[in-house]
Design a protein around this nucleic acid. Structure first.
Lengths: 385, 385
DNA sequence: TTTCACTATGAATCTTCCG
DNA sequence: GCGGAAGATTCATAGTGAA
């Protein structure tokens, strides 16, 4: 990979080009860190070229005084110049500028993640709504080990907020690995509150003195959940506030490409070294989990033609309350009405709609077999062919 | 108590006057519901007269189509006129107007609570910062039983956000019952993420048909934690969007005074009847109650994220007859099939179901460790969850 | 009385393909 | 772009009534 100063870049070796764009004159150079101004760097990228954006912008913390713990040790606060803004207006102008620039380089169905705290997240959320983004979720990162409130004047600030947004309200084709997330969560839908520890220990980058290298390094587990939920292997992930490269490290590990932008050369160099040391997971470990929506369509007629169901046979609902007759053209008949497995299922129940695949069953050796199982068998033979 | 139409009010009998103001000519009439326009009613109140504000404004949900559950039943959505705004600008103007009016009637050290969802909370948060309020915390209400995402297109929207703000950055003398909250929370600081069930069952007000009377009635447990943390007995609590009077009911129960504003006479009448029926707690009983929960659910993904199990590692059953590969998204892979620890455990054994937590083991120093043990260790770190 | 089966419902910005 | 059809999709609680 590489680093670019305005506009110089360093590329990580041994990485492949992004899908289908390498031949373009203005092709996006991936697995690269751009060193320089965030907005100028974004504007140098091709339009509609990235699949996902993760942004961890300055929080504008507005800290006034030093803070000590009850044992009088000093809390190492975020007091960097990059986190200081003259006013809310200045912060808002900065926010709108980078959000606007980022939106231009997002593909039609790309999505954006932004992380923030109560200091800045309301400004960011309002700005992105104003810019035309469409909020899909706000996600709460519940910290396993937050810093306590040493003065006892407020609730322990134990979470940060991520906003997940599409490019617009009409962009319905965004990536979301619903089934994989559910499978990794005890077969329950993944909720909007995530419980993840802070980035500490060996994962936290240190300088020569053993002090933390970056004040707000995010845990890789957080980025992994973001990338696994809303991107595919081979996708390009843009991080306009790259810092020490957590997004890049996780992207490489999970088989995604990244484009990082970082204005501090020291952070960029640390990120490069960190990412170079990352070993990607094996392809079969990161292959997308099966997605029911991606399965090939199988007409019910194919089930009949394959002999799994005979023309003239009766199909029965799971509770044996309704039945219909299979016709040789792959429709069902019920009381003289003929229609698709879905239409007749809906008719039988008096409902506006019905998934016939899971509603109808066939009698096999005195027990009921759902016809969706026959579809799975037909699909298995399609894959083999 | 009483209800006032512009400006008529109903007062609850048997209530005491607020501390130290009953002798003023423009004294605040407490334990009263004002029926009428929110902003006009706030402007009719004396300046610097309330100790706490709780506001549950319209969320501006922007729902377009009907939504059905997988069983085809219709979701009873919030489609009331009061939640419809022409644009973000219209919503922002409304928000700034009530925030400005409310700030005038707040005492110097009063604080404000506002609840919202991602649809509106960024607008509200930005507006209150712009009006000079100083954010103290954002609080996440984690819902025990949220409505699922029926289309599988997003994360379950399982929380709402509350913003807690002081009148200004210099108002340091606000009420916060740090020790009471800590004592009611296993002697740990109360965190910014609260786990509370929805308002259902007997607590939910119903109309003559048995349908919910108000679409967005909040749970009393949520209001109780708000009032217990940031107000004192005898304080005056203003709620400019009173609805069916949850704030009033909890205030009366906890020995606080309330001022409610509600533009719908039907809601106001229901609120009055509800509050009249409330029996105040004895003074010694007014203390925060811990809500002990059952064991928190831990997704297998968290075990992977915590490093107890590595992506790519093999899990083995207790008799070493079956094995599967761990994927980074918290699913398992066996012979090309990907699914949850439970699904793959069942598949390996040819059974309809399986408890993956007790079935799968990891090899550690040549002996097998059941993955349920890792779950116990993760739970131990969750502490206050 | 207890248990079980079945139904109802909650602040929700909730589809995709083909002709 | 539009209309119609295919077809994918739910978790925690409460309540009711039968066994």
């Amino acid at each position: 990979m590489g680093i670019s100063h305005p506009t110089k870049s360093i590329a990580v070796p041994g990485r492949v080009a992004p899908r289908g764009r390498a031949d373009l004159a203005d092709a996006l150079a991936v697995d690269t860190i751009h060193v320089g101004d965030c907005i100028a760097a974004i504007e140098s990228l091709p339009a509609e070229s990235v699949d996902l954006v993760f942004a961890d912008p300055p929080y504008n913390l507005q800290l006034e005084n030093a803070l000590t713990r009850p044992d009088q040790s000093l809390v190492d606060a975020v007091d960097d110049d990059w986190d200081k803004f003259a006013s809310f207006d200045a912060y808002d102008a900065f926010t709108r500028a980078w959000l606007k620039a980022v939106r231009r380089v997002m593909k039609k169905n790309a999505t954006l993640w932004v992380i923030g705290s109560y200091h800045n997240v309301f400004r960011v959320g309002s700005a992105l709504q104003d810019e035309g983004y469409w909020v899909l979720n706000d996600i709460v990162w519940r910290k396993a080990n937050p810093m306590p409130n040493f003065r006892g004047k407020r609730f322990t600030n134990a979470h940060e907020t991520l906003i997940w947004a599409a490019k617009g309200a009409d962009a319905k084709g965004y990536t979301f690995h619903y089934d994989a997330l559910k499978g990794g969560n005890d077969d329950l839908q993944m909720r909007s509150d995530w419980f993840i520890p802070l980035c500490t220990g060996g994962e936290r980058l240190k300088d020569a003195n053993g002090d933390k290298l970056h004040p707000t390094q995010k845990p890789e587990a957080l980025l992994a959940r973001v990338l696994l939920s809303s991107s595919n292997p081979g996708d390009v992930v843009l991080d306009p506030f790259f810092g020490t490269g957590t997004t890049g490290a996780v992207a490489k590990k999970l088989g995604r490409h990244f484009v990082g932008i970082e204005r501090d050369p020291g952070y960029a160099a640390a990120a490069k070294a960190r990412i170079d040391a990352v070993e990607p997971l094996s392809p079969d470990a990161i292959a997308p989990a099966p997605d029911k929506r991606a399965e090939p369509r199988v007409p019910f007629l194919s089930i009949v033609e394959s002999g799994f169901v005979r023309p003239g046979e009766r199909l029965i609902c799971g509770r044996r309350r309704h039945e219909a007759v299979v016709r040789p053209d792959g429709t069902l008949s019920l009381g003289g009405i003929v229609g698709s497995i879905h239409k007749i299922g809906a008719l039988a129940q008096g409902l506006p709609a019905c998934n016939g695949w899971t509603f109808w069953h066939a009698e096999r050796e005195r027990s009921l077999v759902v016809i969706d199982q026959f579809r799975a068998q037909v699909r298995a033979t399609m894959g083999a062919a």
